[in-house]
Design a protein around this nucleic acid. Structure first.
Lengths: 123, 123
DNA sequence: CACTTTCCTGGCCATCCGGCCAGTTTCACA
DNA sequence: TGTGAAACTGGCCGGATGGCCAGGAAAGTG
């Protein structure tokens, strides 16, 4: 056996830039012997950003947003974060809203995941 | 001249495993719009090794729980996850509840953070 | 002085989340 | 055959979340 049937290579596409990710996905979408990984799927290799223009940590987050983000990553609720920072729940929501906007996230879980991927926070 | 609508994407191949590198090089060698970088050349993205390496004592999560967890890490809501997996929202909540229990998390954000920290998932 | 940014606060409200109760089916294993 | 685990579904409900509206205070910049 040994004439290997060329087992499929699973590639994870981990590109932040949506435009580049789309183009790569289109180019690599239907190559025999190659498959892009589903979210969470284990891959043999990953395609990562190597473009100096896309700096990871240069997202303009204010100090307060970083405070809120860090507590979010610890699983804190808005109420808990408010108590920690001695501010109102409304203010926490305000900062969370800004974070969702700046990190292009759909929710707090997505925001934490995005921030971790970009190196803004360490899990 | 024209700035082509599809400028060539330069991809750096950074794989240690020679066999895998060869296969990838062969597969990606002649794709229109895509080019493998010469040594030292600046690339838009790189293909890096992502071998499923040894994970330290992963928690006993069922396959379905891993499915749900992966989609949670992508920021998916219960409704979206339900659609993705073709199950009901109630079932998603059931699995999420199990995940919160097993991962000792207070919420889905905490669950994803814990799972990432313990290497159960890759962000 | 006007002007901007950051940080802060409130109300209102639709939706989502997570925990509680209950149940069914399928499948492996003793 | 029965026993258990896994997966799946439903109703109900209190609380959390996020979006929208509105504002104010402080600090720095033109």
């Amino acid at each position: 056996m040994s004439a290997d049937i060329a087992p499929e290579i699973v590639l994870a596409l981990e590109i932040d830039d949506p435009a580049l990710a789309d183009r790569l996905a289109a180019l690599l979408g239907n190559i025999a012997g190659l498959r892009l990984a589903d979210p969470g799927e284990k891959a043999a290799a990953a395609i990562v950003s190597r473009d100096p223009r896309i700096r990871p940590a240069d997202i303009a987050l204010t100090q307060r947003e970083l405070d809120v983000l860090a507590l979010m990553a610890e699983g804190g609720s808005n109420k808990m974060i408010a108590r920690q920072l001695n501010i109102s729940v409304h203010t926490v929501k305000f900062h969370v809203g800004s974070l969702l906007d700046k990190l292009d996230a759909t929710g707090r879980t997505d925001a934490v995941a995005h921030a971790a991927r970009r190196g803004v926070i360490e899990l």
